[in-house]
Design a protein around this nucleic acid. Structure first.
Lengths: 334, 334
DNA sequence: TTGAAAGCGGTACCAG
DNA sequence: CTGGTACCGCTTTCAA
């Protein structure tokens, strides 16, 4: 492991017998002299030269990097986003930096502030909560930012959002059509972006389906399996007449399935269950879980595309894109 | 969005009425003059100065970035790794870059080669296959690399590995103890690092358990749910006497559970099932899936720690760490 | 077309 | 302790 210093453009120039300017030109396709090109390439091969992206960045004021910040990459929805964001960016030559902020609002703000260090050309942010300080930080962000999630109208950044309203309505309408009348909802924390949006969506869904909502059938807990299970056990014990449960994500819904099994209730015979996010869990569970896809993958891809457009110099007004949800019906509600 | 040029150290120096050297010193804690410190800080506040990490990187030859490259972040095992790698690195001030190589060997080699661009200080690599070219590339890597996975002994890089042998043995012994005699194994591709290791582990496990192996009960497919399901259907139809199945990962094992259900076989009554990786799928499935944890989270953390040590200048001989597996028994094999 | 030279924004050595 | 300055490695004007 002899750590010989990496060759610089000067070595190449010396070996090729030309100036560093010529080497730079040749490497960047700004030479018409074929002979020059050949000599430079030969020298590059000989010394094993690879340009330093750091030096290039300093000169060009452009890092070739983009950051993606979300609460926890362990969350299936965010995971789906990264999986699309990364290739989309890479195809355009950008590297992806990951920031898991761990549900820490300070950390989210820290990421926003750190943009001033100019270590990335842009940011895709998936905030768990949007406070005034977020809005302020977004306003003065040093580089283009695309936010995935709900955002006040007057914040001047590109924005990709899911349509939780329609999503929840799809679920509720589907359940109602199947004959459900007492539809319960187990949501995540109401003070998070997704928790709030899904709650509003659920209410709207009930209304759209012409059903009378009952607040006693709505619970707030964490977006987790165990939380869903425990909450469902409580809920179903207190209200045995519930004939359908919507989980705010697939983990919660899986918890509901388990709770129902423990209570000896049949799914979908006695109670129908639908989840949200349509993660791999849904397809592999038993019974297979119906789930509303909020288009995480599409949101990720769109966010990346919007950002790329900005990085390309587009200075059109901030755009807002809403991704339509879709319901996949499986055994749990058939 | 007025994109005013970001202030440089020169602005700060001018405002503070001192030299840029003094500003740099003050900012890096190399000043003893309290007055100087105060003036500089005031100026920093006033102009809103934030140092450019790019310029710092160029000067210090150190980027503060580390890359993690694996096949697909969507794979639960890799996901667990990232979740530990990121915080471990961040605590030491490093940012994390993600490279999903998508099962493309060329891409893996590309990542290794790109290290010469010096955009990161180190790399954690989880190769799907290890070819001679990998070994060669690892030898001449421009920055420290830690490999997670099996590696020939003579490759001089830090290495963290799982113990698939013991892992599979745990599973097989557990199944044998429970009374299983015809234990089948559905593996991933044999020419991948994990596929090979788990196969060897399974064979060793049978032997250790004093069981006679039957090649007809071993199948190779993809590390996926549907692949597992289809393969299990075939296998179980051809060999109805199979009384236990080990899946090379939880997805495959979930597929096996589904197949058994379709065939009307009881789990664990007729057939016991065990998976590997102990992902969230295992705990939430029905029946809950027994699974061998190969310590993905620990491997990730250890890899990050090894790398940090290297980045800290440690030039001890390459280290190899093996993480012990552990079996969590759940309903599917109880 | 080619080479010299001026930065990009910092760090750190060296002299005062 | 402070300021001047060289330099990190590259891109890009500007003259020749």
């Amino acid at each position: 492991m002899t750590q010989r210093r990496r060759p610089t453009i000067h070595e190449v120039a010396r070996v090729a017998g030309v100036s560093i300017s010529s080497v730079s030109r040749a490497l960047n396709g700004n030479t018409s002299n074929a002979d020059m090109l050949a000599r430079v390439n030969a020298a590059v091969q000989q010394v094993g030269y690879v340009p330093s992206v750091v030096a290039q960045s300093l000169k060009t004021q452009h890092t070739g990097q983009v950051a993606f910040a979300m609460e926890d990459i362990g969350n299936a929805a965010y995971l789906e986003m990264v999986r699309r964001i990364q290739p989309t960016l890479r195809d355009e030559g950008y590297r992806l930096l990951l920031h898991s902020t761990g549900a820490d609002v300070e950390d989210e703000l820290g990421v926003l502030a750190s943009l001033s260090q100019n270590y990335v050309d842009g940011l895709i942010l998936c905030p768990l909560r949007v406070t005034d300080r977020h809005v302020e930080a977004l306003r003065r962000a040093a580089v283009p930012v695309v936010v995935i999630g709900l955002l006040p109208d007057d914040v001047p950044v590109d924005n990709v959002r899911a349509d939780s309203r329609v999503g929840a309505r799809l679920a509720v309408e589907h359940l109602a059509e199947a004959g459900a009348r007492r539809i319960a909802f187990i949501d995540g924390p109401l003070d998070t972006v997704p928790g709030r949006a899904r709650y509003d969506g659920f209410r709207a869904g009930l209304e759209a389906a012409g059903l009378h909502g009952d607040d006693a059938l709505v619970r707030f807990t964490d977006f987790q399996f165990e939380a869903g299970r425990r909450t469902a056990l409580e809920l179903l014990t207190e209200h045995p007449d519930v004939d359908a449960v919507l989980g705010a994500n697939d983990l919660i819904a899986m918890g509901v399935l388990h709770a129902l099994r423990e209570l000896g209730r049949d799914v979908p015979g006695d109670v129908r269950v639908v989840g949200m996010d349509d993660t791999p869990l849904a397809a592999t569970s038993f019974p297979a879980l119906s789930s509303v896809s909020l288009g995480s993958a599409d949101r990720g891809r769109l966010a990346a595309e919007l950002l790329l457009r900005r990085l390309d110099g587009d200075d059109a007004p901030p755009e807002r894109v809403t991704v339509p949800p879709s319901l996949t019906v499986r055994e749990s509600s058939r």
